[in-house]
Nucleic acid binder design. Structure first.
Lengths: 229, 229
DNA sequence: CAAAAATTTACATAAATTTTACATTTACGT
DNA sequence: ACGTAAATGTAAAATTTATGTAAATTTTTG
């Protein structure tokens, strides 16, 4: 599961946040001081960080700026959670590099919702997935399994590669040449119905609903879309 | 500059926000109702949207969900600005697809800071070069989709290429020869009504308003312009 | 060698495009 | 202002083209 860093000097609040977020299924690493957190953050690469501002030692804002300057950390979403509730402080916090700003006292439900919202967008959330999910279809590059509405579909090599390429380019129109080049090889006669044939078997195997995700764009190629339209 | 949509039914607040954000250098389009905003958003592709929740007609949350479901809009950052200040509402708003949630009364400095924070991260900072937007029409080269005032228009190959060429040369007069050469090929009989025919179907499919963007320049060719004139 | 997969062939079908024939509009000279 | 020729618009029919489909054939794989 995703790891979240919590930097907060008040023991009670820190524990409260830790336990709450763990309740939401996150792994939580809690720190009392920014220096401590910065020591581990580069190797940990947490999915998100919750920062208090007033800390013993290094100030929260300073730590945030430090993170933002580091190329490998700068995309980590940061949420400031502090007692400083003047508008000036909020502006300073957000402009200082934070992605969200909450004031104490706070509700854990809202904190969790804001964290979900930040993670939803984060590149760092799903990134390297070898699982392609589009609408009713899911395709796993590793296991080479394809499911349509949870039902497993057996595909041959070419069919799988075709579907994968279409799904990786979902919504974009992929030309016939592009497909022939990518899956078959640079040159190719082209004056044959091979591609159409595989599209056909694919559509057949994916069934009514799944099959309708592959739309033909006459004169150009094919396009993977949400069923219907 | 970046365009921001503001959807807010209270005239005073709407104007306040509009003027404040314009002061920060944004272009602001303000709407009283969600339906109105949704009608234009697809062709406008604003950089961010500020939504009130309680609106006459369509509810703000419904509108947000609608945007999130649309492939070409789902990355637009959305900030909810509402009087609903219960924690439950905040959770519902954020989980409903919003990226931030502010409650009224609010400070414009904080609003601006939150907007800056959202835009900082947005992939949508720079315009999509695959997208041609002219007035009420939008054309996507990758997906080969065309929208007129948010309504999808299905075009055939030649129609699409014709429109694309005209839009790429908007305001310039494009000669018949130029069009025939570019879309058909070097030589071409020319003594036939093919081109006129496609212009006709294009105008028809684009409807009253969209169609009137293609103006004929007698004796020369055609010209893509803003509707009316 | 058998079975599965991939490709080819040949044809059907549906859709896009072009042509034909005629109507309408516009520019221009009188 | 009027008539005329050229340019463009329009509708339906004809044609072409792209893609779908089925069965036959070849190639790969175990």
């Amino acid at each position: 599961m995703e790891r979240i860093y919590v930097i907060e000097d008040d023991d009670n609040i820190r524990d409260l946040i830790k336990i709450a977020l763990e309740g939401f299924g996150y792994e939580v690493s809690a720190f009392e001081m920014a220096e401590e957190a910065l020591r581990h953050i580069e190797s940990d690469k947490p999915a998100l960080a919750v920062f208090d501002l007033m800390l013993p030692g290094m100030d929260g804002l300073t730590a945030i700026r430090r993170i933002r300057k580091n190329e490998s950390l700068k995309d980590i979403p940061i949420l400031i959670l502090t007692a400083k509730d003047r508008e000036f402080d909020k502006v300073a916090g957000l402009d200082g590099g934070a992605d969200d700003y909450m004031t104490k006292p706070f509700g854990v439900m809202e904190l969790a919702a804001r964290i979900r919202s930040l993670l939803r967008r984060s590149t760092r959330g799903q990134a390297d997935s070898n699982e392609l999910n589009q609408y009713c279809l899911s395709l796993n590059k590793k296991t080479r399994e394809v499911h349509c509405d949870g039902v497993k579909v057996e595909l041959t090599l070419k069919e799988f590669e075709l579907l994968q390429y279409l799904m990786e380019n979902h919504n974009k129109v992929v030309t016939r040449d592009e497909l022939l080049n990518h899956i078959w090889g640079y040159d190719y006669d082209g004056e044959t119905r091979t591609l159409d044939m595989h599209i056909r078997t694919l559509r057949q195997k994916l069934g009514e609903k799944g099959g309708s995700c592959i739309k033909t764009v006459r004169g150009v190629g094919y396009r993977f879309i949400k069923a219907e339209e």
